[in-house]
């Protein structure tokens, strides 16, 4: 199934990616060829096959419910694009 430029714009919005208008046709073409390629899977008989999410049979480990992380806010905020008084700054969300 081919994607139209408007489909690409919709997907890019869901993924929060800005795609320049002049690049949209190229993405539509590339994504369509990738989708046409993966549609080969339709031919596989998967009736009754359990989907596999993870390669190894393993259960999630549990650990004691104890605090293990220390406060490293200053360290982490030192690499943030914009912070003020210990807070991450973003454009105003609520007027």
């Amino acid at each position: 199934m081919g994607l139209k430029p408007s489909d690409v714009e919709g997907i890019a919005h869901l993924a929060r990616l800005r795609i320049a208008p002049e690049d949209v046709p190229r993405y539509a073409q590339d994504l369509s060829s990738i989708l046409a390629f993966v549609e080969r899977l339709e031919a596989a008989d998967t009736e009754g096959v359990t989907p596999l999410a993870h390669p190894l049979d393993m259960a999630q480990r549990l650990r004691p419910d104890e605090v293990t992380e220390t406060d490293q806010r200053e360290r982490f905020q030192a690499i943030a694009p914009r912070v003020e008084q210990g807070l991450y700054l973003v454009p105003k969300v609520i007027e």
């Binding site: 919005h13 800005r18 982490f76 973003v90």
Partner: peptide
């Protein structure tokens, strides 16, 4: 673009910042 990594110049709103 909030906690680390690249951030665009002069975002007009939060969605613009992300995108």
């Amino acid at each position: 673009g909030v906690r680390f990594g690249y951030r665009c110049q002069d975002p007009v709103d939060l969605e613009d910042l992300y995108k």
